[in-house]
């Protein structure tokens, strides 16, 4: 078992203004799964994603990642966990402007104390695996949306994480590029065994996942494994 959530809740604000975004989530995710979390805006899917990604902490309930009890970690310890085990890709790509592909991909490695050569080699390998070996020196402004998202994927997998979190990864992309990116994620999941957890509200995007978890009003509405 990779991820285990038990009676997880998250409340924003206090008193009358309090808003319960998650109202008791039980969820198990195994290593190597490709899970799509779906729901309308305000359903709590982003909150769940942030807690799973160790960016946020639950109000109550337990979250175990491997054998780590996440809610007991300090902010710094969660940073270390993210650094070593988790990768992130975002709807807006979030690449550093005026920074080349190689340098963008090297950023996570800067926080791991690798030598310049190791950093460079790992970055090159990650970039090659997303098919951008000919765009090493280009800055994000010189790349298409799909290419930028691939740089972002390379940045997320360069640290060889066990889990990849993707927050609306195709929200800014056209249909053809969307399929391209989803194939890339599927391949990483299949070939490297990286667990992929993806938030989306589009059915055709979610269709690439092996399992679809629907969230409504802070609770799991349905949890289907595709045959």
């Amino acid at each position: 078992m990779l991820i285990q959530l038990r009676q997880l809740t998250k409340t924003y604000g206090t008193g009358d203004a309090a808003f319960q975004a998650l109202r008791g989530i039980d969820l198990d995710i195994n290593r190597g799964e490709f899970v799509a979390i779906m729901g309308h805006s305000g359903s709590g899917k982003s909150t769940l994603m942030n807690i799973l990604g160790c960016l946020d902490t639950p109000t109550s309930g337990t979250y175990r990642y491997e054998d780590i009890t996440v809610e007991r970690l300090t902010a710094d310890q969660r940073s270390i966990l993210r650094r070593h085990a988790l990768g992130f890709i975002f709807q807006g790509f979030n690449l550093l402007a005026r920074t080349s592909t190689v340098e963008n991909v090297e950023i996570p490695l800067l926080y791991r104390g690798l030598s310049r050569r190791e950093r460079h080699e790992k970055a090159l390998a990650a970039i090659a695996s997303v098919g951008l070996a000919d765009k090493l020196r280009n800055t994000p402004a010189e790349l298409s949306g799909g290419q930028q998202q691939r740089v972002a994927i390379a940045r997320a997998i360069v640290t060889e994480p066990s889990t990849l979190f993707a927050d609306e990864p195709t929200g800014n992309l056209d249909t053809a590029t969307t399929i391209e990116i989803m194939r890339l994620l599927t391949r990483l999941n299949a070939e490297r065994g990286i667990t992929v957890i993806m938030v989306t509200h589009e059915d055709d995007v979610a269709a690439h996942a092996k399992r679809i978890v629907r969230i409504k009003d802070g609770l799991i509405e349905s949890d289907n494994i595709r045959s």
Binding site: S79, R82, F88, N94
Partner: peptide, 8 residues
């Protein structure tokens, strides 16, 4: 981004 990818 830096915080998300593990900067303390």
């Amino acid at each position: 981004i830096r915080l998300a990818i593990g900067a303390r």
